[in-house]
Nucleic acid binder design. Structure first.
Lengths: 209, 209, 209, 209
DNA sequence: CATGAATGAGCGTTCATTCAT
DNA sequence: CATGAATGAACGCTCATTCAT
């Protein structure tokens, strides 16, 4: 699920976009607090402070489509926030550390969004009962983001030779582990996590002198 | 939720116990395959090959109670399997490694049960919408199991001085991480995981000479 | 529904009779407290302190039969209590006042039974939806009890000529009204009610000199 | 439960109001004929001639809410009918007699509604098993209606001094008794009842000359 | 006399969705 | 852009009852 801006997005009127945003925000809160199973149209309606659940199905169609919209919205926002912090870094090393830092910072600042994403990924299923958005999807997305940075570093000589896909997955795993360590006792601070993961990343990637 | 054998357990007739087992086994499969939200009485009925969902509510009462029964059943079985492998180890060091090994082995051999447990813990909620069985509960259970071993090792001089609760939590985290690494690509073998975690545990606990 | 001692009653073993009494007593309490709709086998089982609802259906068959048994039990007990107080009164006048007094006294002393009776009469229905025990039935029973006394008084010259059925119904109505006045504010004492109704009865029946 | 027009009532569309009325009317009939316990959504659906019970829960939510809506609807209709007949009476005496007359007339003309009300009041219970709408509530409502008339009569000198609450309760009791006499054999005509109760009321309240 | 196991029917409720404007 | 009305499908649960010993 490579996330790109929806085609229809440009065609939407400003008020429609606002309504969608309002509903998505409510859905995120409900998902984070009450879980996927209880994230019903009715609860989301209450949270959004709108009059009828019909408004939700009007703007998003089915429940599955709403959930996908939530997922995309969160992913795009995260991407944007991370890109804002990562752009402009001249070297691959700096871009890598900036990216890790930005990712962890975004996670720390948006626990509800993270939880909502998690709820959707672990529960949304298609008619056959198969998970719609497995961990696979999110892993692929991450590889797509990290691999280019890693390749650039290898070409510039900053990084040693390694399998970029495997390294991207490894770093993704480390970040996932950090999420747990930031959210569950004994808690680590964001800064500590950032320090740890960036150190790990640099040691793992730097070209041996 | 320290899991002990249910009081009513002894009072149950053999046939009732068998039926319950049959239904629990079916529930585990459905939970693992289809997730908590789709683990309905009807699906479980099909899996168990019984004629009516009424049989489920007859033996377990409500859905929540069924889920709790599943949870308890899995926990008891895991405890028993681990105890079987751990008992008789003379030293704390051996008991610790045996325990880690047994736990990981059980996990590797019972992926459906692990997944079912996970589904219940992440989705079962009470009327207020709060998670019924948080990670907290499972963490506490693990501490209760590990801490005595660690204390014994400290008294015998095998282990250095450290906070046993914190160490137990840390080892629990390592095992949780290992679950992920055993189940998600790039996959590690059980043996590799065992080796890694036991090494980590021994290094972390051994008394400095 | 002229209530007579059940034929099977003599055939029942002492322990069966005791069990039936225990269950009936529990049913009366549940009916009085929770109403007909909530007077389920399960609630009665709890009250009776027995292990299985099966014991109820074993002794009484269907729910309807249980309710009828409760009704009969109450009616017989009331009849007996009233008869104990009424027997031996030499004149019709005395028997009439004794009867009114005894009836009101029993009612005052057995509010739960009265309420249970009421619940059954107002709610028990047959398959067609018709009330099983209408007010009609209880009225007829009362007439059957009172009319002989009234007729005897007429023959002895104590009472004037009147339609005994109509008079019996009227006195029954007065007693029903007294129940309400004894149970709902502004409450009247049993003694006041007795005095009022007996006065009314004597004035209404006595032969004019 | 002082009955006032529901706030939402004005917000309801004409078609919704019509549907609600249709369903309430059907519910009244079913309640009167089959009793509270058998007044299921399915039976009401049949009576209302609608296609799905879902339409009932759509308009009323839960069964309890439907029953409350029925109760309120009946109470409001009775209030309105009585007010129509009572308004414009110049003296307290006339208003009192008009009110008694109107009340009995409404009761005589709406036996099904009376019965339905009765069924709900005697059977509807909350989760604790306590009656939702006791006789207390209806008594209070009646006092609230009658007391002002009585007070006005006292101030104008038409009525003697007495406790208005107690008198209101007494008149309410007399009316309740009249209901029984109108509906159960030996039946009295409405006119007879009206005559009797109004006479009683006037004698009981008039200021002694 | 008592019990355990099983069962079928029915009920209210919830949920997302569709048909109309 | 928004809303109201209606709907069908599924679910968990409760209840009394029956079939076996």
């Amino acid at each position: 699920m490579q996330v790109t801006r929806d085609e229809q997005d440009g065609q939407r009127s400003p008020s429609a976009t606002a309504r969608r945003g309002q509903i998505i925000a409510a859905a995120v809160q409900v998902l984070a607090e009450s879980g996927y199973g209880r994230a019903t149209f009715e609860r989301i309606r209450q949270r959004a402070g709108i009059s009828s659940t019909r408004l939700i199905s009007y703007h998003f169609g089915t429940r599955d489509e709403l959930m996908e919209a939530v997922l995309i919205d969160i992913a795009l926002e995260a991407q944007a926030a991370i890109a804002r912090r990562t752009d402009g870094a001249p070297t691959a090393t700096e871009r890598l550390t900036a990216r890790i830092e930005a990712e962890l910072a975004w996670i720390a600042r948006n626990p509800a969004a993270v939880r909502a994403m998690y709820e959707i990924c672990m529960n949304a299923r298609d008619e056959d009962g198969a998970l719609r958005y497995g961990t696979q999807a999110s892993a692929e997305a991450n590889v797509a983001e990290l691999a280019p940075i890693l390749r650039a570093g290898q070409q510039s000589g900053e990084f040693r030779e390694f399998d970029t896909t495997l390294m991207a997955l490894t770093l993704k795993s480390a970040i996932d582990a950090a999420i747990v360590r930031m959210t569950q006792p004994p808690r680590l601070s964001v800064d500590d996590c950032v320090r740890e993961i960036t150190t790990l990343a640099l040691l793992a990637t730097r070209s041996t002198p």
